[in-house]
Every structure is written in structure tokens, then in C-alpha cells.
Design a protein around this nucleic acid. Structure first.
Lengths: 249, 249
DNA sequence: TGGACAAAAAATGAATGCAAAATAGCCGAC
DNA sequence: GTCGGCTATTTTGCATTCATTTTTTGTCCA
């Protein structure tokens, strides 16, 4: 009954000197900011069913706060596209149809494509070496059929490229869209099809190659295609989810 | 400075609340939504000086509402990156340094580049014809040295490309970033240098050409470069905001 | 005169209260 | 037994109120 939203290890400790500051992080000090972070994680991790109605009152009890800061956080989450607010009818977790997912993947593809382009202008040899390191690590996961490790390392590679672009605005936007997709991933529990792995590994090698040569346009193309292929795999998996146990309440 | 926010149509509910008028509302007729739209336009149009402090109290009086819906709108605007909220210190219009502008232009470049790529997959001949029409119109403005008309038509062309991408998510993100830049443009009153015009016209012709051939990668490159050049011109203009006269390369 | 300290004033952050709308619950009619 | 209308409860939207924090102002002393 007391379903408390997990305090995600990010207590009220506010003024972190964290390097990768997000541009809205001055919220962390105040209550509504704290709520915003907790709720966002909570939603992204798929703890609320798709389209699920979530009465404010209940959330307030779960969080131990009044409705005012909660409502402020909800407005922000709605602006971020994670939930939708129906007038006089409360907040629902935004449910993404196939078309929405396609659009999201394409935007992600565009952002990564851009990140690659920009990275070619600014990336250091050391950063490339680090990414190569991640690549080998990922290759290890691939050989061991460790899907979870593979997936995480893969994500770190892409984040490294975005970081190498030296563009905080891009990084923020990327994080936002990534969150929306991750939410679906959590609840639908995407599994990359095994056959896709080999392709993905080859594409990653091509990415590294273009990155080493600082071939901006080429890298841009490769990254877009890479994400496009991811999109196709994900959509196929969604329409035919025959690999994991579905989670339906 | 007692500026009133221009009332864009229907007035909002009188302060006494219990007024007899019924809300003849549509979806977004909720108060905070109304406020959000008005405030966003107000900020985007540059009516508040950079970094200017805007006491909630004053805004409430201007809008004739209480602080609750106003604060909700402010949170959203902060999430959109138009303003920043300093803890316990109120809302300020976010001021963009040169680096911020560079980042914004690059992200815009990435989004338009993506839009071009996607448009090649879905655009119809009729849409291309419409864009050609706009192109000729813009050429007319160019010949007449009508900077304002040129600028508007140019914007419509880019919006048409984004629309042709058939991606609402992209369109929304594009509008958001465009708003941030437009705000700067309003207050700084960018003027494109004349010499840049000729280049821009040539680039637009290349864009049209690639679009006709549905050459996705090529169009993507051209659009990115086009926006990159815009960026350079804009930044130069910012750091050295003097002439409109032609300069020698 | 200028600076430092303290108190007053104002602004922000959050909680509570109240009216309107929506949902559900109930009863009667068919 | 089911459908439709009416009432009661819940829920949302906004205003108001309370508690801190910040800013300003005023005073005193060097």
C-alpha cells in the first residue's frame, strides 16, 4: 500500500560540481526539482503502465508532498513529452504507438548523425582510443552473448560520441529523447535479435573507421543508417514480441 | 516599465473569479495553457531584456491571474530553455552567449539536415513544386533587396522541408529551437550581410536540386553546410554588429 | 563619508482551501 | 436485464495563505 517512489540514490544533496550539468539542473535544490527528477526516473523506468491514470492525490501521498510542486513537475514532464495532461482529466503516461516510435528513432538518428559530424571537428585521439576500448569491450560481450553488457556498452559508445561533439544543447536534447525511448524499452523489454548483432558490430567498426579519419559526412551517413537499422529491428520486435515474457498486469 | 502583454484575442477570466462568463474553451483553454502561450510569445518576441528579472507579482498583475498557473507556465518555459529559474531568486530571461548560439545553430543544422534526409523519402512532386514557388518568390525579394520579405520566405522554405519530413516529433523540436534563436534575432535584429545573400541563394538552388533528385545524403550535407554558414554569418554579425554594406571576401 | 550590521519589506516556495468539472454510484423506466 | 438520467463523491484548476529566503533600507559607528 505504501508504494513509495524509490529514492534513486540521488538524495537532496544539491550543489554537485558535476561536470555534465544539464541545463535545467538548478532545480535540484528545490522541492519541485527534486520531485521532477524522481518522477522522471520513475516514469522512464516504466513503473507506471502505459496510459495509466495517476491521480495527483495518490502521487502526493507517495511522495509526501502537497499538490503544488507535484503539479509543477507534471507540467514539465508533459513538456518533455513523457506524459500528457488531459484538461480536467489528469495526467497519463504518454503511450507511444508504432508511428511515434518510428519518429523518435528517426530524431535520435538525426541527433547522433549530427553528433558524429560535430565530433569529427573536435574529438581528440585520446577520446577515440577510449571509444575503441569500449568497442573491444562490446565485442567481448558480443562473443559471450551477453546482451545486457553489450547493450550497456553500446549505449556508452553512443554517449561518448555525443559527448565528443562538445555541444551541451545537443547533449540535453539527446538525453531527453533517449529517455522517452528508454521508457518504452523498459516496459517492452526490447531484445535485439541475434542476427542483428553481427550487422551492428560491423556498423560500429565502420563508425570507428570514419571517426578515425574524421570523415564527417561519411560518419554522419553511417550513424544515421545505423540508427535506422536499430529502428527497424525495434519496430519488428514490437509488432512481433516473441522472445521475452510479456508484462501485462 | 509597465508594459502589458498583448492580449492575443479572448481575454482571460476576470480576477474576481466568480464572474458570470463561462469558459467557452477548447482544449488549451485552461488558464495555465493560455498563460504559457502568451508568455512564450512574449519572451520569444524579445519584450523582456536579456537576463531581465521578472517578478512573479508583476507578471500576475499584467495577466490578471494568481501566481499558481503563472509558476506552472514558468516551469515549462524553463524546461524549454527560454528562461532560467534561479532558486529563490526568480525567473530571468535566459541570455545566450556566443557559445550558446553556436550550439543552437548547430543543433538546428542537424535537425534541418535530418529533415532533408527524411523529406527525400516522403516528399511529393507537388510539395517540391510549392517549394520551388517559394524559391522564386524569395529570389524576387533578393533582387529587390527586400530583406524582410526574403527572410520570411526563407523561413517558410525551411519549414516546408521540415513539414515534408512527416515527423511531428521533429517538427516540435525544430519549433522549440527555432523559438530560442528567434528570440535573439528579435532583440539583436540580425541583418544578413549582403554578400552572404548571393551565397545563400546558390545554396538554396543546390538544396532544391538535391531535393528534386531525392538525394538524401547529399541534401543532408548541403543543408548542414547551409545552416553552418548561416551560423557563421550570425555570429560575425553579433560580435561586430555594424555594417550592412558589402564587404570583400 | 563610508561601511557594516540589523531590521523591515518584498519576493519566492510550498501548503491549504474552495469552486467547477468529471467520474461513479444509484434509482427508475423500458 | 439493460439503458438512461440524476445525485454524490472524487478530482482537477486556481486562488489564497503561510513560511522562508532574499533584498532593501535605515542606523550606528569608525
Amino acid at each position: 500500500m505504501k508504494a513509495t517512489i524509490p529514492d534513486t540514490g540521488a538524495p537532496i544533496t544539491p550543489p554537485t560540481g558535476n561536470g555534465g550539468d544539464r541545463q535545467e539542473n538548478r532545480h535540484e535544490a528545490s522541492l519541485h526539482g527534486e520531485i521532477l527528477l524522481r518522477l522522471r526516473d520513475y516514469v522512464v523506468e516504466g513503473n507506471i503502465p502505459e496510459g495509466g491514470r495517476v491521480p495527483e492525490r495518490q502521487l502526493c501521498e507517495m511522495l509526501g508532498i502537497s499538490r503544488t510542486p507535484l503539479r509543477e513537475a507534471l507540467k514539465v514532464l508533459a513538456a518533455e513529452g513523457l506524459i500528457e495532461l488531459l484538461p480536467n482529466r489528469g495526467a497519463r503516461v504518454r503511450q507511444l504507438g508504432q508511428r511515434d516510435l518510428e519518429e523518435l528513432f528517426d530524431v535520435m538518428a538525426g541527433l547522433e548523425s549530427l553528433a558524429g559530424r560535430l565530433a569529427c571537428e573536435a574529438i581528440t585521439d585520446a577520446e577515440i582510443t577510449a571509444i575503441e576500448q569500449l568497442h573491444y569491450e562490446m565485442y567481448g560481450h558480443y562473443l559471450h552473448r551477453d546482451m545486457h553488457g553489450y547493450f550497456q556498452t553500446n549505449q556508452r559508445i553512443h554517449e561518448s560520441i555525443v559527448a565528443a561533439a562538445r555541444n551541451e544543447t545537443l547533449k540535453t536534447a539527446y538525453a531527453n529523447f533517449a529517455g522517452r525511448i528508454r521508457r518504452v524499452r523498459y516496459s517492452a523489454n526490447f531484445a535485439r535479435k541475434r542476427q542483428r548483432w553481427a550487422e551492428a558490430m560491423r556498423e560500429h567498426e565502420a563508425i570507428l573507421d570514419a571517426l578515425r579519419r574524421r570523415a564527417a559526412s561519411e560518419l554522419s551517413d553511417i550513424l544515421f543508417q545505423h540508427l535506422r537499422n536499430k529502428r527497424t529491428a525495434a519496430i519488428e520486435h514490437l509488432t512481433e514480441p516473441r522472445e521475452d515474457a510479456p508484462a501485462s498486469p
